[in-house]
Write a protein that binds this DNA or RNA. Structure first.
Length: 543
RNA sequence: GGCCUUGUGGUCAAGCGGUUAAGACGGCGCCCUCUCACGGCGCAAUCCCGGGUUCGAUUCCCGGCAAGGUCACCA
């Protein structure tokens, strides 16, 4: 058969030669050992923790080696396209400190552009044509129904499903048959003529998984769909070669198609890049666990963490602790270090999927927020508040001085021990609410109504905003004593029957009356910040 | 079902032939204390199972089992 003629009929016209493309997309001029990685999402616009997990890996591997990460958009499937998706992905990742050096909507070095696969149609066709000319690819006229029927038959006979060997009907079509189909205007796809034999297995070194066994591919996978657009497999080979990716980082679900990619690279005459297949983030789902899913787990979207007000560094720290097993230890020793100083290594990545653990993230978040100064916290809250805060919350920023004092108190700034009461911006705003709004409701008092009134009145009589903390507390004790509560905890513990309760119960009355809550930071300071007038008003209201 | 991957406490995990099997999160006690938070001190773990190899296996080998992934003109 004249493959050249066939190629011309299938993909008519002049296409540049492989040599042309090799020259157009030359090897990158980077220092020795520099890695080129990429993130290649499809433009659905939805990005979740699992994607961040992957993106951080790409970014770290590239930048730790003075290399480059780029963003390529895999838009070969029209059905997945969503407007504004690319910008959304970029901004979501940027928020969590993943920045690309080049790529779609980013710019940078244009040498390897375009980064949208739809815009690279000519390159794929040029190489598909070359494969046809060499007899390594052929047209297939099977319809979807044909393929479904084939699959059903194979399933019924307990054979391996797919288009291969004797089942690859169009593989051995005669010249006449092909042209007859073509003349009849039948749609076709281009398939790879696989030379592999699944009996053959070999070892392959994966940068993350270590040595894995690969079974030779024998599937005649489609490389060009009937609309002339490449499938993922083909685009991957062409793009990662010409964009000069040195190491392909992707989810382990791709491990299964690695044999296809290996054969494709060989058929195209491209050197194989290195690969690192990372495990995916899992989620407990009833009895079993499964990998994070866009559709089922919207609460795991990056947007969700922004809305809740998670501190971006905390999310990154959590991702890194899952990503590299020795990160946590390193971070314990270097709590204030630049995260990018951590010697990130692909080989240190876990081989099995980790369950996403919100408790752990929350713990990290508390710690990260506790490292902030009240000024930094105010800044973080203000940025968050502008975008996600309620109208009432936005007013908190009007009185800057009060906000600072409130934050300093709530975070324990100045003391040796920081408070860790909140994990997110939204919780923090809720926590400081009582400084700016009178409590709408009060938690239940432990003492009787009569005792409550007596305590409040007793305190109101003595209260003087000019008192220092010690004097203030001694007055609380006086109030306790005069109402039958133990002024000293020790006395109460030794002889609980002799008292109605202790100073702690008295303090609680004052605390709930002024803040609405039983749990707050130091009450004396709270009263100082509120000021005498406001404090008296709140106490009086509960008498 | 075929193929691939993984298997240490509830979770993340260190460990690489001899260990009281680290650490972190969570849980539970106790202490500190005007509450809470913080902090401090404790407590709880048959290393999936069965065979081998070895003086000795969580660590090496084989076989099970379990879990996950994948088998599209989706990525």
């Amino acid at each position: 058969m004249d493959y050249k003629l066939l190629a011309e009929r299938l993909l008519p016209g002049e296409y540049p030669s492989p040599a042309f493309y090799e020259e157009k997309y030359p090897a990158r001029n980077l220092p020795k050992g520099a890695e080129v990685t990429r993130l290649a999402p499809s433009p659905t616009g939805f990005i979740h923790l699992g994607n961040l997990f992957s993106a951080i890996t790409d970014e770290r591997i590239a930048h730790r080696s003075s290399g480059i990460v780029y963003l390529r958009i895999e838009d070969t499937d029209l059905k997945r396209k969503v407007d504004g998706a690319v910008e959304a992905v970029i901004s979501a990742l940027k928020y969590f400190d993943v920045k690309f050096d080049e790529g779609a909507e980013i710019g940078g070095d244009e040498t390897y552009a375009p980064w949208y696969q739809r815009q690279r149609a000519e390159i794929y066709r040029a190489f598909a044509k070359k494969l046809i000319e060499e007899g390594r690819a052929y047209p297939c006229f099977c319809t979807e129904e044909d393929l479904t029927a084939l699959r059903e038959e194979q399933t019924k006979n307990k054979e391996i499903t797919g288009y291969y060997g004797k089942y690859a009907k169009c593989r051995n079509l005669t010249e006449e048959e092909i042209y007859k189909n073509l003349d009849a205007g039948k749609p076709f796809v281009i398939r790879l003529r696989s030379l592999g034999n699944p009996e053959n297995k070999f070892k392959f070194h994966d940068e993350i998984k270590g040595d894995v066994t690969v079974t030779e591919n024998d599937q005649d996978v489609v490389i060009l769909k009937s609309d002339g657009i490449p499938t993922y497999h083909f685009a991957h080979a062409v793009d990662d070669h010409f964009m000069r990716t040195t190491i392909v980082i992707r989810g382990e679900d791709w491990l299964a198609s690695l044999p296809i990619h290996i054969e494709l690279f060989a058929a195209l005459g491209f050197p194989l890049p290195r690969y690192g297949h990372h495990c995916s983030l899992m989620k407990q789902d009833g009895e079993t666990r499964r990998k994070l899913s866009k559709r089922k787990d919207p609460e795991l979207s990056l947007e969700f963490y922004r809305k809740e007000g998670y501190f971006p560094r905390a999310v990154k720290v959590y991702m890194l602790t899952l990503l590299n097993s020795n990160f946590e230890e390193w971070y314990l020793k270097n709590p204030d270090a630049d995260l990018n100083e951590f010697p990130f290594k692909a080989a240190k990545m876990s081989k099995s999927g980790a369950l996403f653990d919100l408790d752990k993230l929350n713990d990290i978040s508390k710690n990260e927020l506790a490292k902030l100064s009240e000024g930094e916290m105010a800044e973080f809250l203000r940025e968050w508040g502008e975008e996600f805060g309620t109208e009432a919350q936005k007013k908190y920023f009007l009185d800057g001085e009060k906000l600072m004092r409130a934050l300093a108190l709530c975070m324990g700034v100045g003391g040796k021990k920081r408070r860790k009461d909140f994990t997110t911006a939204s919780q923090a705003m809720e926590f400081i609410k009582f400084f700016f709004e009178r409590p709408a409701e009060h938690e239940a008092y432990r003492v009787t109504d009569g005792d409550r009134r007596a305590v409040l009145q007793g305190f109101l009589r003595r209260y003087d905003a000019k008192d220092d903390a010690q004097t203030w507390f001694s007055k609380v004790k006086e109030v306790a004593a005069e109402n039958g509560f133990a002024a000293e905890m020790k006395d109460y513990k030794e002889n609980p029957e002799a008292y109605k309760g202790s100073v702690s119960d008295v303090a609680e009355v004052l605390r709930i009356a002024t803040t609405g809550r039983a749990n707050t930071p130091d009450l004396y300071t709270i009263m100082q910040i509120l000021g005498e007038e406001e404090t008296r008003a709140r106490l009086q209201a509960e008498v």
